[in-house]
């Protein structure tokens, strides 16, 4: 008999650490920045996984709800039972991608955009985010100072003592190809590369 979704969640250390029999008090929801502005209730996520019901957990994995969390982990500080709904969400998100259930929700499908920005930046530049990739069109909140900075990056960064696109140490240095190769090998060894390939394949199929 194949493993249940709950059994698979239990294999994630964050789920193990995050769930210690919730008493349903709702402090996590009262304190949650996502609950302040979204129709989102971390308490109900914990209540749902505690039912152990396969179809209920599948519903979470296929829905938008688990993608609302901002992972600030304010819930960890406040829970009187030392639960961490944020950790449970992390485990649910991971399982949603691994099972392919993320494809069923709008928010889940948005994850390809994350993969193509911060995910790909890591392997391309060795940084999660990188000046050259952050345009004013995609990030209008950066304001006109960002435009000026990007257009004059070499001169501005040199004035500030940085080593932009230089070899060796320093702020904004180029990460060497050997170091980038090690990152890629880590991605291969730990399943990130396979996960990224699957996400791209699905997105191409969808189009």
């Amino acid at each position: 008999m194949s493993e249940t979704l709950y059994e698979r969640l239990k294999q994630d250390v964050r789920f193990e650490e995050g769930l210690n029999a919730c008493i349903n008090c709702g402090i996590c929801t009262a304190n949650c920045p996502a609950a302040r502005f979204y129709d989102y209730d971390p308490r109900m996520i914990v209540v749902t996984v505690q039912t152990l019901k396969e179809e209920e957990i599948e519903g979470l994995l296929k829905g938008d709800t688990i993608w609302y969390c901002g992972e600030c982990l304010s819930c960890k500080t406040r829970c009187p039972r030392e639960n961490t709904p944020g950790y449970i969400v992390q485990a649910l998100r991971s399982l949603s991608i691994d099972t392919g259930y993320y494809k069923y929700s709008k928010k889940g499908r948005q994850q390809i955009k994350v993969k193509r920005t911060v995910g790909d930046n890591i392997l391309k530049h060795g940084y999660c985010m990188y000046l050259d990739e952050i345009t004013l069109e995609e990030h209008p909140e950066q304001g006109p100072v960002w435009d000026w900075y990007r257009n004059n990056a070499h001169s501005v960064l040199k004035r500030l003592g940085a080593n932009y696109k230089g070899n060796g140490a320093g702020t904004m240095r180029d990460i060497s190809q050997n170091d980038l190769d090690e990152l890629r090998q880590i991605f291969v060894e730990t399943g990130a590369e396979e996960r990224f390939e699957k996400m791209e394949e699905y997105d191409h199929e969808r189009k």
Partner: peptide
């Protein structure tokens, strides 16, 4: 010490929900 070989910790991708735990752990 400012090491030229260090890289991102991968944390933003981790907390965005696209990287497996094992990947960030190994980075």
């Amino acid at each position: 010490f400012d090491d030229p070989h260090q890289t991102t910790c991968s944390g933003i991708a981790y907390h965005c929900g696209v990287l497996p735990f094992d990947t960030t752990m190994t980075v």
